[in-house]
Amino acid sequence: MPTEAALLESHALRVERMGRVEALDKVKILVMLPDGIHLRTEDVARYFEVPAVVLKKLVQRHRAEVEENGLRLLRGAELSTFHRDMVSLWGGEGAEGYPQGATQLTLYTRRTVLNVAMLLRDSDIARSVRTHLLDAEKDLRASYVSLDSRVTRIEGCLVGVGSALQELGPVLSRMSHRLDVLDRKLDIIHQAVGAIGLRLTDVSQDISRLDTRMDDLAHRLRNLGHRTNG
């Protein structure tokens, strides 16, 4: 894990952490211009609690790097347009305090301010931002280690599950075969019951016919008895 000194000295390490602009507001609230995007040199100096001249010297020493991370210098027509936009957004009495007489204006973004925080040595605020960046990274690494451990345990469990499934496969196959045999036997029983039902229906019809014939025979015997007695 990199140290604060390494962060101050290594451009590559700063590049890796350049997207972590949330660290700024974790330490101290940034007061932005009305567009919510830019800050002036005096705004950044106020944030880091250093004289503006200290900030200007740092920017001169690391001009290429801070320009890569959003530093802009406005002049001429571009500056006039920016002034008009800011005054329009500022509005009311606040617009009177907006500095429009300057012939040039240096603008910073949150990304630029974070870049400065990783370069500025003599500022407690900058030091706190660097500490927050490194501590957050330490916590993130710890989370990765914990997650890696959990994934490893899950992988170990899955190995056991795979073995269990391999052993269960033949058992399930045998059970499936037995259920198929049972299903065929049930079909045979169902067919037999159906046949018995048909036979019982035939027997019932035979009994009905026999009852009819018996009734007819009894009737004929009674008639014969009457004729004999007469």
Rank of each mutant, 00 (worst) to 15 (best):
A136L: 10
V21W: 05
W90N: 04
M214A: 10
L165Y: 10
C157H: 10
R150K: 12
R17Y: 05
A12Y: 03
A5E: 12
S128I: 00
R46M: 04
K57R: 15
P99E: 11
D43M: 10
L165H: 11
G70I: 10
Y108K: 01
F82A: 03
A142M: 14
E9A: 11
R174W: 02
I207G: 00
L107E: 00
I189L: 15
E16G: 01
T201S: 13
E16L: 09
V181W: 08
L74I: 01
R84H: 04
E16Y: 01
R178K: 10
D85K: 13
G92I: 07
V53L: 06
A126S: 05
G97Y: 11
L186Q: 13
T103I: 02
G91K: 12
G70C: 12
E137F: 05
L182D: 13
E65G: 07
I37P: 00
A136G: 15
R130F: 03
S173W: 06
S146T: 12
L74W: 00
L172Y: 07
T3P: 10
A102G: 07
E67I: 03
I188K: 15
V54S: 12
L172W: 06
L165V: 14
D135T: 13
L24E: 00
M175A: 07
L73R: 15
H177G: 08
I154C: 08
D180S: 11
R174S: 08
E96W: 11
L13H: 04
R178H: 11
T131D: 05
F82M: 04
D35F: 00
E4Y: 01
K185H: 14
A95D: 03
